[in-house]
Design a protein around this nucleic acid. Structure first.
Lengths: 196, 196
DNA sequence: CAACAAATCGTAACAGCGTTACAGCGGTAA
DNA sequence: TTACCGCTGTAACGCTGTTACGATTTGTTG
């Protein structure tokens, strides 16, 4: 009875892949539905029947970005030194952001108008930080860090990493100094302030 | 010979004022030239004859935002304790951001497509941080902080404040805890890591 | 075998955006 | 009064996301 559907899962993944490439190579401004549909070889209607609109498509990219981000963090091995683990997590945080810089604002800045992470994906996003949370808890439990609520130390480490990376991506890198070294020294100093 | 010009400085400031209000109350998405011109009672041509386009108008808002931001920081009195001064500067940083939250992304995130701060306004923006730089230098000179390049400590304090504020504005505030207290404790811990 | 029905998809239209070309307004000078 | 000329609002262009609708394609039915 119906005509065979071409808006299937294969097209869905092709759209998502192409959207990710457009975003990573040319930025959020280059991600338009007409451009995307033309590149993939379909019409803009596909995005509406498969996702529901542009914000819904960006939502998928949002969770995908956090999946990759979480993979970078989970790749950091846990040792018996939670302090050093936190430093390595901070370095991985920046590596992940610099790997594809256009994906980072999707996660933490509202670069696509009309998309705001809802409660559900917000919690999924927060889940990507679980290695960080675990390292902080291990450090507090081992008596390495001060006896403060773990969320305080988590927000401190996350805030510093996010702030430094965000400033760097927006062109506010420290002048002539080596950004890598400044970043790591900053991570270590911040953590030193939390040590018991 | 010519008809009297209505695209004068008065209209210019009215446009800037209204643009600031639109930005502060309804966000960057509500700032359109047609809406702006209609609110002020002129046509979109005024923005082009007075500024040169939307990015140029946003550039003015950018420097204006940094002026206000710098005023907040300069309002913090300098005492003989550079460490405590830095804490107070960090608190003023957040107060300034929360005063009109929609202005903050104009400064530090690319929330308006087509506008990127050029070299000149970027340096003016950085100049707003001079109270921070001076406090850091005073602390290092007094032997309070470690003997490291001052830009390192500056980037550390700035990065942390920017990161925490940025996360808060994007809805990633720490759970049930008091955000004010967590923020201040985080500032103090970070600075403690730099003390000699 | 032909006609119908139903589901799907591309085309086209709509409203809005920034930007720009252009015609018309409004004074002053001849 | 008329011609001139700078200034400004209108309208158009190309773009965006979104949506209504007609064309297409199939299986089913007469």
């Amino acid at each position: 009875m119906p005509r065979p559907r071409t808006h299937d899962d294969a097209l869905r993944t092709r759209l998502l892949d192409r959207a990710g490439v457009l975003l990573s190579t040319e930025g959020a401004g280059a991600l338009s539905l007409r451009r995307l549909a033309a590149d993939v070889g379909t019409s803009t209607t596909a995005v509406y029947s498969l996702f529901g609109g542009k914000p819904a498509l960006v939502r998928e990219l949002f969770v995908e970005a956090f999946h990759r981000f979480g993979s970078h963090l989970r790749a950091v091995p846990r040792t018996d030194d939670p302090g050093e683990d936190l430093i390595q997590l901070g370095l991985a945080y920046r590596r992940s952001a610099l790997a594809d810089p256009h994906l980072y604002p999707i996660m933490f800045a509202n670069v696509v108008p009309g998309f705001e992470p809802d409660e559900q994906v917000g919690q999924e996003a927060f889940a990507a930080l679980s290695p960080l949370i675990e390292a902080v808890r291990a450090g507090i439990a081992a008596g390495l860090f001060r006896q403060v609520p773990d969320t305080t130390v988590v927000m401190s480490c996350w805030g510093l990493a996010h702030g430094m990376v965000s400033l760097e991506l927006n062109g506010y890198a420290p002048g002539e100094d080596d950004t890598d070294a400044v970043y790591e020294r900053t991570l270590r100093a911040n953590l030193a302030g939390w040590r018991a």
